[in-house]
Amino acid sequence: MSAEIHRLRDRACDSEKITINLGYVDLGHIDLLVREGFYSNRTDMIRTAIRNQLGRHAEAVQQTIVRQTLEIGLRHFSLADLEKVRDAGEKLSIKVIGLAIIADDVPCELACATIETITVLGTLQASKAVKTALADRIR
């Protein structure tokens, strides 16, 4: 299959918004650090803290990625990609850390015929119909 894997960069268009709840004291500490100029804003501080924790656990994460054969970055599955899989009589086990995209023109029947399982640690983008059709295969 000729689909490519792309490394994602930390840009606004390559990110997903999350919501977290913090205690008032923790939030106050963050605001203090921002006010004192350590960080430009709350988001900057939280991103930095998350990256620091990911860095602390980088070896364990890398070992898990190798052990579970996960692909990192952007993985796009086009209509042509899935037709090749079907024509070869194969099925995919999709495992991605990052963003997995199933093209909008992929019909539910083709997705069901070619995708055995989907594990995405990050975001899965696909039509609502395809997500519904594959719901029992999404881990």
Rank of each mutant, 00 (worst) to 15 (best):
E4C: 02
H6G: 08
R9Y: 11
R11E: 08
R11W: 02
A12R: 15
A12P: 15
A12M: 14
C13E: 14
D14E: 13
D14R: 07
D14A: 07
S15P: 06
E16Q: 13
K17D: 10
K17M: 09
I18D: 05
I18L: 04
I18Q: 04
I18G: 03
I18F: 05
I20Q: 05
I20K: 04
N21R: 10
L22S: 06
Y24R: 13
Y24L: 13
Y24V: 09
V25I: 14
D26M: 08
L27Y: 15
G28D: 11
G28P: 07
H29T: 09
I30S: 01
I30E: 02
L32R: 12
V34L: 03
E36K: 13
E36R: 15
E36P: 09
E36Q: 14
E36N: 12
G37C: 08
G37I: 07
G37L: 09
S40L: 14
N41Q: 00
D44N: 06
D44L: 03
M45I: 11
I46K: 00
T48L: 12
T48S: 12
T48D: 12
A49W: 08
I50C: 08
R51K: 10
N52K: 13
N52D: 09
Q53I: 11
L54W: 11
G55L: 05
G55I: 03
G55E: 04
G55H: 03
R56I: 08
H57I: 12
H57C: 12
A58S: 15
E59V: 11
E59D: 06
V61C: 11
V61S: 09
V61L: 13
Q62W: 11
Q63A: 14
T64Y: 07
T64L: 14
R67C: 15
R67S: 15
R67E: 14
T69R: 15
L70M: 10
E71D: 14
E71V: 09
R75I: 00
R75K: 05
R75C: 00
H76V: 09
H76S: 09
S78L: 02
L79M: 08
L79K: 08
D81A: 08
D81K: 04
D81M: 05
D81R: 01
L82H: 01
E83R: 09
E83W: 04
K84F: 04
K84H: 04
K84D: 02
K84I: 06
V85C: 03
V85S: 03
V85E: 02
R86M: 08
R86Y: 10
D87T: 11
D87C: 09
D87L: 15
A88P: 04
A88T: 05
G89R: 02
G89Q: 02
E90T: 11
E90V: 12
K91F: 04
L92S: 03
S93R: 13
I94Y: 00
I94C: 01
K95M: 04
I97Y: 13
I97A: 12
G98Y: 03
L99T: 09
A100Y: 05
I101E: 06
I101G: 04
A103F: 02
D104Q: 13
D104T: 11
D105Y: 03
V106C: 00
V106Q: 00
V106K: 00
V106F: 01
P107Q: 01
C108N: 04
A113S: 10
T114W: 02
I115T: 04
T117C: 06
T117N: 06
I118P: 00
T119W: 10
T119K: 07
T119F: 11
V120L: 01
